[in-house]
Every structure is written in structure tokens, then in C-alpha cells.
Design a binder for these strands. Sequence first.
DNA 1: GCCAACGTTGGC
DNA 2: GCCAACGTTGGC
Length: 157
Amino acid sequence: MPKRYWLLKSEPESCSIQDLARAKQQTTCWDGVRNYQARNFMRVMKLGEQAFYYHSNVAPPCIVGIVEIVKEAYPDHTQFDPKDKHYDPKSKMNSPTWEMVDVKLVEIFPRPLALEELREVAALEGMELLRRGSRLSVQPVSPEQWKTVVRLAKRKQ
DNA sequence: GCCAACGTTGGC
DNA sequence: GCCAACGTTGGC
């Protein structure tokens, strides 16, 4: 399996990339995903693969940095916690429905790349994030798209 | 706060 | 299996 690239959405209100930078080991578990497609992508993530960190539900929505998979898919404990927002009463202990991965901060971009700006990049046409109505919170990014975004992030202003 | 675009649920 | 109703996501 060739190395793949990903994009993870997070509402900064719950966990911004700055929060991640302050976290123990700069690592967090990606819990709370309750969408099958997103879960299936997490299941195939491999150690060392990288993902863009995206801030959603804020103005402006933007890609803010890079994280790395430091633990492959394992059961998301919040599905069994009745007090948790993401509690899933239908999920069984012996066959958990939902999984998560651990991610570690790699870098925060010198400047955030706003969605609006990304929409204007021809090479990113077709990127899942830019698709109208796209809501997928865990999504694949092609190597070409990855390279393009990284290049944009490093470009001097 | 609005609402389009989804995904899920459940009656039939 | 269809599809209307509902809940959620997330840009704007």
C-alpha cells in the first residue's frame, strides 16, 4: 500500500491546532467520528502517514497545519460513554462500531490557507474539501494536491 | 442565524 | 426497497 495523504476537520472550538500544540506529546486521539465513510478512511490509515489539519465552522475556514498518524485505528471509547456527546447505545463492546486514530502535530503553517484561497488554485480542482456540499470530516488527499498545498503554505508572502 | 447538502431513520 | 421526515455539518 503506497503512502497516502489525508485531511482532518476539526472545530477549533473543541480542538484547534494550537490546543494540539499544547497537548501532552502534542498528540490527541481523533474521537467522535460518527460517519461510516470517515471511519473507513481512518481504518486504512497507516503509521507515519500525514494529514492536513483543517479548521471548520470558523471564519475563515482554513488548513492550518500538518499532523501525523502515530497510532492506527482502535476502538473509540466515547461510543460507550452515556455521558459523552458521541455516545452510541447501539454499539457493542465486543464489536465496536466506531474507531479512532491518534495524531501528533508535525507543524503549524506560518499562515493559514483559507478555503476561499484554495478554491482559486487550479491544481486543486476536484479536491474533496472544495466539493460543493462536502461534509466529510476525514478525507483522502492526492499526492499532487498535497504537494500543491504544502508549496502554497511555504510560499513567502 | 440561515440554509443547502448530506446521512440516517423508520413507516410502509 | 422506497422515500419523507428529521438531524447534522459547515460555509456563508
